[in-house]
Simulated scan of single mutants.
Amino acid sequence: MSAGHACVDVYQGAVAALVPFLVAERSYGYAAASGIVLAASLLSSVVQPLFGVLTDRRPMPWLIPLSTAAAGAGIALVGAAGDYPATVAAVALSGLGVAAYHPAAARLVRTTVGGAGHTAMSWFALGGNIGFACAPLLVVGALSVSGPAGWWLLAFPAALGVFLNIPRPRPAGPAAPGTAGAAAAPSPEDRRAFLRLSLVVIVRSVVFVGLSTFIGLYVRERGGGETAGAVALFALFAGSAGGTLLGGRLASRWGRVTTVRRAYAAAAPAVAGVLFLPLPLVYVCASLAAAALYVPFSLQVTLGQDYLPTRMGTASGVTLGLTVSVGGLASPLIAAAADAASLRTALLPLTLLPLAAWALARRLPEPRAGAEPAPAEAEAEAETTPAA
């Protein structure tokens, strides 16, 4: 499932990586280029809760390979698109595939593993981080091949992902933890805690999206040059991968809510270090800040599923998609503040937002270890697991 996740999320990063090629080859302006990115991001994030609702009503394991194929086909069809509307439509198809994949896949990870599931979810999230980070390499490598063949090479990860994500019968044997015991009733919903958790995820998203968008420019403004900006961005992404895995381990020791609180408390000084420490230490602080912001990432998904145990798909769609999209809307505000004052001034609120997330997380309850999925849903989804 983690490898399959990488094969899907590579297409989230591929859209931004394709923009320079489209601007150069098709003479798109900045507004047209931003429209392409917007089409992908809105569909891949905002529509996710709708697919979550669908998977809650009826388990659809076949949606996982189908959505993987759609994500890859959409990006490959960008090369065949003759005009701007066709290009937007192709990118939208890819975004729709990404949106359909995440709630169904995250839900299946949880119901298959059973229990708290934070370690499994951290590996699943790590796959997505790796895929996103590899997207620029895929685009540059594929489009170095001239002609239509280069564009169709972009579909290769999707072909691999379809194979990894095809549902296959589970071998006979002991039932997976959390899927046996069909008599176990799911925990009651805690909508207030889920709403508070959603606010925490939005705040976290504003901080990370703000850093990832502007850290390269900020380092260059401080005299680091383009290479230094790229190194800072790499440190940020490397820290996010490490934090994703670390979150599952820390949650096993401290519990999920405690880990989330401590991570946000640690993120505040790390973000401040990015803005105020000398340039060589900025790389260290960027990596530490990303790690602290990504420690809660997979834990927040499983917490949301436990707060809405009868609607795990909806919870996954909100925590993985909608709240991330809403958090990204802050980037234009940061840019406007940077134009009006300075980039450092515009980024200063990011040092306080982790403390706001910490304050919100203090009132989050710790669900009982591993809320069980609804019995009928567990049995339906336990019959098949994707090959990995």
Rank of each mutant, 00 (worst) to 15 (best):
M1W: 01
H5W: 08
A6E: 05
A6M: 13
D9P: 05
Y11L: 15
Q12H: 13
A14C: 12
V15D: 01
A17T: 04
Y28M: 15
L38M: 13
A40D: 12
V47L: 13
P49C: 15
L54W: 11
D56Q: 06
R57T: 02
R57E: 00
R57S: 09
L63Q: 09
L63K: 03
P65H: 12
A80G: 00
A80C: 03
D83Y: 07
P85W: 02
T87E: 04
T87I: 07
V88G: 08
G95F: 04
G95T: 00
V98M: 15
A99L: 07
Y101T: 05
A104I: 00
A106K: 00
A106Y: 07
T111N: 03
V113L: 09
G117T: 07
M121V: 07
M121R: 01
S122R: 00
S122I: 06
A125N: 09
A125H: 07
G127K: 07
G128Y: 11
F132S: 05
F132L: 15
A135T: 08
P136K: 08
L137T: 12
V139H: 01
V140I: 12
V145F: 13
A149D: 06
A149I: 07
L153G: 10
L153W: 01
L154V: 03
L154Y: 00
L160C: 14
G161V: 06
V162P: 06
F163W: 13
N165F: 10
N165Q: 13
I166L: 15
I166M: 14
R170I: 09
A172M: 12
A175S: 11
T179K: 03
G181C: 09
A183M: 11
R196E: 13
V203F: 08
R204Q: 12
F208G: 02
V209G: 06
T213L: 14
G216M: 05
G216I: 02
L217G: 06
G224D: 11
G224T: 05
G225Y: 05
A228T: 06
V231A: 14
F234T: 13
A238L: 15
S240W: 03
A241K: 11
T244A: 14
G247Q: 09
G248I: 11
L250M: 08
A251I: 07
S252L: 14
R256L: 06
V274C: 11
F276T: 13
L279A: 11
P280Y: 09
L281M: 14
C285K: 04
S287K: 00
L288W: 08
A292F: 04
Y294S: 11
Y294P: 07
F297D: 09
L299E: 06
Q305S: 14
Q305N: 12
D306E: 15
L308M: 06
G313V: 00
A315W: 04
L320V: 07
L322G: 00
G327A: 11
L329M: 13
A330D: 04
I334P: 03
T345H: 10
T345D: 12
T345G: 12
T351L: 05
P354V: 01
P354A: 00
A356T: 12
L360Q: 01
P367I: 02
P367G: 03
E372T: 12
A374C: 10
A374N: 00
A376L: 04
E377V: 03
A380E: 04
E381C: 00
E381L: 01
A382Y: 03
E383W: 11
A387Q: 14
